[in-house]
Amino acid sequence: MNIFRLAGDMTHLFSVLVLLLKIHTIKSCAGISLKTQELYALVFATRYLDIFTDYISLYNTCMKLIFLGSSFSIVWYIRRHKIVRRSYDKEQDTFRHHFLILPCIILALLINEKFTVKEVMWTFSLYLEAVAILPQLVLLQRTRNIDNLTGQYIFLLGAYRSLYILNWIYRYFTEQHYVHWITWISGLVQTLLYADFFYYYFHSWKNNEKLQLPA
C-alpha cells in the first residue's frame, strides 16, 4: 500500500458516499445517470468475485464490501425508492449502455492476462469501469445543469483514477516485475475521459461561476 493508492481509495470511497448522501438526504437523484450506476454495480460484481476466496487484507475486504453495498444500494434507490425514482430523468438518460457491455466482454475475451473465468471477468470489469462514466457525462451534456454535488461526485471519481495512475507509476519503480499493461491502459483511458470535465470543472471553480458544459 502506498499513499497514492490509499488516497485513491479514499477519494473513491468519498465519491460514492457523497452520492449516497445526496440521494438519501434530499431524496432526489436529479442529474444522476442510473445507467452509469448500474455499470458500476456490474464492475464491482465482476471484479470482486474473489472476495470470499482470496483474502488479501481486512482493509481490502472491507472496502470491497462497501463498494458493493453502496453501488447496489444506489441502483436500488433510483430504481425502487418511491420518492427518489420520481426524480430519475428516464427520457434524458438514454445512453445505450448495453453497447458498452458487449465490446468490453469481447475485448476481455481477446485481451487478458490469463484465460480463466475469474481473470476474464476481472479484465471485463477493468474495461467496463473505463467507460462506465459515459452515460453520466452524456446526461450532463444534455441536462446542462450540474448541481454541485453531482459535479463533486464526478470530480472525485476522476481524481481517484488519476491517483491510481500515480500509484502504478510508484509501484513500477519500487516493485520489480510490476508490469500490467491492461490495468494501466484501461486506467489511463478512463482518466482521459474525465479530462474535459476536469477542464470545465476547474474553470467554473476558478471563475466562481456555475459549471456549464458546452453543448
Binding site: D54, I56, M63, K64, Y164, N167, W168, E175, H180, T183
Partner: peptide, 10 residues
C-alpha cells in the same frame, strides 16, 4: 507473488 499483481488493488 500476490503483491506483484494488481489483484491486491480495489
Amino acid at each position: 507473488a500476490q503483491d506483484q499483481s494488481t489483484k491486491d488493488e480495489l
